[in-house]
Write a protein that binds this DNA or RNA. Sequence first.
DNA 1: TGCAAAATTGATCACTGTTCAATAAAATAA
DNA 2: TTATTTTATTGAACAGTGATCAATTTTGCA
Lengths: 204, 204
Amino acid sequence: MGRRSDHSRQELRDMIITEGHRQMTANGYASFSARKVAKRIGYSIGTIYNIFGTLDDLVLAINGRTLDLWREYLEARLDNLEQGRLQQAVEAYFEFAVLHRNAWNAVYDFHLPEHEEPPEDYVEKVVAIKNVVVEEIAAALPAGRREEAVSLSYSLLATVHGHCFFTLNGTFKILGETNPLNAAIARVEDSIAALKNDCRPSES
Amino acid sequence: MGRRSDHSRQELRDMIITEGHRQMTANGYASFSARKVAKRIGYSIGTIYNIFGTLDDLVLAINGRTLDLWREYLEARLDNLEQGRLQQAVEAYFEFAVLHRNAWNAVYDFHLPEHEEPPEDYVEKVVAIKNVVVEEIAAALPAGRREEAVSLSYSLLATVHGHCFFTLNGTFKILGETNPLNAAIARVEDSIAALKNDCRPSES
DNA sequence: TGCAAAATTGATCACTGTTCAATAAAATAA
DNA sequence: TTATTTTATTGAACAGTGATCAATTTTGCA
């Protein structure tokens, strides 16, 4: 058949991602299926594959949507905030993950085949989230050390991520840690304090 | 049939885990299959299910094996080491993950069904790794603050984990971070320094 | 020996990702 | 308008998956 009159190709692509993201959020990566998405939007399995080529590409598109929503969530939480921006940023990082745990986990459960690179627009979305964080770290640093903000941001992002990950996957529960969010914030503040108190250039 | 004369039930269980771990290491979580394990050890698919009940339980057993090997790797690297134990611990954490990336990822790719608890012996293995870390953190702290070692250990474990995770999943590559190991060590030292320099009890 | 208990099987089911010839609809040309 | 080309869509077919369980075979014991 030809194009159904009521959907452009781009609109259809978007429909699939939206419904896919809905199912990912509801049921998680493990029980995600392209067929279920197709059925729900009233198209056949073949159409999904015509548009995305591969299940991996569909999952990447859905995860990309999650990254977009995540960044928007961070930005909204920081909008017009005067005090405690850094703490709010960490809190928002956690909150989004808890609120959308299935979709958030899917971002990290999915792995590209070895030696394959993520598509450019996916990379951009990751970088966009990083930029939100770099901004806040830079603002928290003493004026003379802001050029270290970028490299420190990578590291503090990983620090917060680790705490968030252990919260969602149950490791902190096993270990008996009861306030991971505070712990994450404390670690971030430790490193910023270290940079403030110290005259040596920070490692990494 | 009855028991094959050459394998006790426990030995068979172990065979399955060993071969499962081998395949997990070689091919990763995404293409892991109980049938392939069965075929490789010369048993039928039914036997796997008789012994483990569920694919989840088999995966948990395989991941448990990974945790055992990981702890042994950490302990071996720290054995009889006088100086720089903490740095070595972090380095060993990374090294094991890189060396066994598929098996290591499987530990975190797998999720129990919501509201289900991990089996006791799995919990013990996680705690055992944590204990190795607690030991090293405690030794690095000033004598008077060692009671804070446990709670700080959870947090620093998460910190190192985050750096290790971003190394393996390619996030650091996207961001342009080139020396994640050094960054992780620097973060750990930041927090230990914060506790040393500060008189307030540490948060978290 | 015979018999009960334990271990092992694999066909069967409902599902998955993936492919691709066949088909139907729309766009364009005549 | 009609004919033709281009594009979009389909779903049967294939090989694989986790899971089940009646039937079967082996073993240990009386």
